Computed example of a mutant assay.
Amino acid sequence: MSEYEIAVVHGDGIGPEVCAAAKSVVEAVPGLTGLNYVEYPGGANEYLRSGSALPTQTLEGCRKAHAVLHGATGIPGVTYADGTETGIEFGLQLRFALDLFANVRPIRLREGVRSRLAGRQAGDIDYVIVRENTEGLYAARGTGIILRDETATDTLVMTRKGIERVCRFAFELARSRNGAPGDGKKRVTCCDKANVLRSYAFFRRVFDEVAEQYPDIEVDYAYADAMTCYMVERPEHFDVIVTENMFGDIISDLAACTVGSMGMSPSGEVGDEHGFFQAAHGSAPTIAGQNIANPYGSILSAATMLEWLGKRHNDERLSAGARAIEAAVDQALRDPSGLTRDIGGQASTTDVTQRVISFLR
């Protein structure tokens, strides 16, 4: 029986609470053994303690692990001299160091959760945002220039290699899905600003070149500003969306609110060799320690981790564990007692955790 090492970084704010919930759910999957957890520090509190949000031992631990499970990092008041947050350095630098080029963010409206879009029901919204994760505007992190306290610049970076691989990832993902809810078509939508900037026009051109290799997948386009309208007006049209780093960050937050809240949004950041799994939300320090944070996003991220590990290592035990967690989450949400405050209920973090575990058993 295979053994897998999971690096666990709890982080800041609600990070330790939701990360513990995810870990507890994975540990409760019947018959799922062989996962060994090793905890490492990281985030804003670690920066205050040691001067680094991503200590060397944490980076090396994440590099050698089979996967990384994370809570959340960042505290708004803990910043560098330039005003940027220290805690998020953990995730940003880990993406670059482990080459986690595809940030996969599933957007699915589940039964029992009310959409903020009128009239939408479970099954109406079910698509995936694939966010390029190592280039774009965020590649300028720490390298921007402030000239004489009058002018500030950050450089948007795109490479052919980076665009090709994330677009290919998106098309391969579309092949594995059932298509858009509205018409059942397997479709990849390119979200950009190709009408304004050369960098995005280049992104679209390379996207088109990759698309030629997938004649079975419908090709679609949306400018980023229009996309924010389409995601509200006709979310059933989308199957897979691929986009640049910053645009992916922005539209995935909007998308999460259409399926309940940011607390319902899992993510998996993957490359050719490594995988990093966390909910798409932040550390929410204003509610930390109150046992009211929504852990579903983290629990579903842990399921995504098992699915990724299962495929990577051809281990059906892990894949079955992922399916079991997904099913347990769906059952937990069907009754109001499984809803946290952000999605219209009163359940606590531990209430949800135990409820999901009860359906696993």
Rank of each mutant, 00 (worst) to 15 (best):
S50Q: 12
R110W: 13
R63P: 01
G91H: 07
G142L: 10
A53W: 04
I146E: 15
E39L: 01
F101N: 02
V104P: 02
V104F: 02
R120T: 07
G77I: 08
V130G: 00
Y47M: 07
A139Y: 13
I107F: 04
I125G: 04
T56F: 06
R95Q: 06
R141W: 13
Y37A: 07
T155G: 01
R95I: 02
R105E: 08
L35F: 07
G31T: 11
T56P: 02
G77K: 10
A140I: 03
N133M: 07
G123C: 11
E39H: 12
V104H: 01
A122H: 10
L48S: 12
A102K: 00
L117C: 08
G87W: 03
L137F: 12
E60D: 11
A122S: 14
G71Q: 06
R95N: 04
T58A: 04
R114E: 14
R114A: 15
L147S: 14
T73W: 07
G43K: 00
T134C: 14
N103D: 12
C62F: 04
V78N: 05
T143C: 04
H70Y: 13
E89R: 10
V130T: 01
Y80G: 03
V130H: 07
Q57R: 13
L137Q: 09
G123M: 12
G61V: 03
Y138A: 02
F96S: 09
L32E: 08
I145N: 10
R63I: 05
N133L: 13
L94K: 01
G71Y: 06
H66F: 03
R105L: 08
R108A: 12
L137V: 13
A67H: 00
A97R: 15
K64M: 02
V130W: 05
A118Y: 07
G136M: 07
Y80Q: 08
Y37Q: 09
V113H: 10
P106I: 02
L54Y: 04
L100G: 05
V78C: 08
N103V: 05
A102R: 02
L54N: 03
A152G: 14
I125T: 05
Y138I: 01
A53K: 00
C62N: 04
G42N: 05
E135Q: 14
G136I: 01
G71P: 09
A97S: 15
A81L: 12
E46C: 15
L54C: 03
G74R: 06
I145C: 08
A122M: 11
G83V: 10
G112I: 11
G91K: 03
N36G: 05
Q57L: 07
V113F: 11
V128M: 05
S115M: 12
E150Q: 15
V128E: 01
V113D: 07
Y138D: 03
S115Q: 11
D99V: 02
Q121D: 09
I88F: 07
T33E: 15
L54R: 03
T33M: 05
Y47Q: 04
D124V: 09
R120I: 05
I88L: 13
R63T: 14
A44D: 01
R63C: 06
L98N: 01
D126P: 00
Y40R: 04
Y80D: 06
L92W: 02
